[in-house]
Computed example of a mutant assay.
Amino acid sequence: PAGIAESGRDAFAMSGLGPRDIQHAQLYDAFSFNPLLLLDRLGFATPTQAADWFHSGRTSPGGDFPVNTYGGLIGYGHTGDASGMSMLVEGARQVMGADPDRQVAAETALIHTYGGMLAEHCTLILGRQAL
Rank of each mutant, 00 (worst) to 15 (best):
D81Q: 12
Y70T: 02
A25K: 03
H55N: 15
S32E: 07
S60G: 15
D40T: 04
E120D: 06
P66L: 06
L27F: 08
F54C: 09
L38A: 00
G57V: 08
V104F: 05
A92H: 15
F31K: 05
G91S: 15
L42S: 05
T79S: 14
I74V: 15
A98M: 09
R9S: 09
D40Q: 08
L36W: 02
E107Y: 07
C122W: 01
P61E: 07
Y114W: 14
G80E: 10
R93Y: 09
Q49W: 05
L73H: 05
M85V: 06
E120V: 09
P47F: 07
C122M: 05
Q94S: 09
T69I: 15
S56W: 05
W53K: 06
G97F: 04
L124A: 00
A50Y: 01
M87F: 12
T59N: 03
S15V: 12
R93M: 15
A25M: 10
Y28D: 01
R58K: 13
D10P: 03
E107V: 05
N68K: 11
P61T: 08
S56M: 08
G3T: 07
P66G: 05
Y70A: 07
V95W: 00
H55K: 14
A130K: 01
D21C: 11
F44G: 00
R58P: 09
A82T: 10
T59G: 03
W53H: 10
L124R: 00
A92N: 10
L36N: 03
G71E: 11
N68E: 10
F12W: 07
H121Q: 02
H55R: 15
R20C: 13
H121W: 01
D21V: 11
S32M: 09
G71F: 10
M85A: 11
T123E: 01
E6M: 10
A109E: 03
E120Q: 05
G75V: 14
R93T: 13
G84F: 03
T123F: 00
F33M: 13
G77Y: 10
T69K: 06
Y114T: 01
Y28A: 06
D52G: 13
G116Q: 12
Q49E: 14
V89G: 05
G8W: 00
L17P: 05
T108C: 05
L39P: 03
F65L: 12
F54Q: 11
R9Y: 09
H55E: 15
Y28R: 02
A82W: 13
A11H: 06
L124D: 00
F31T: 04
G57S: 09
S86C: 12
Q26T: 04
L36E: 01
A51N: 06
S86I: 09
G115M: 06
I4E: 00
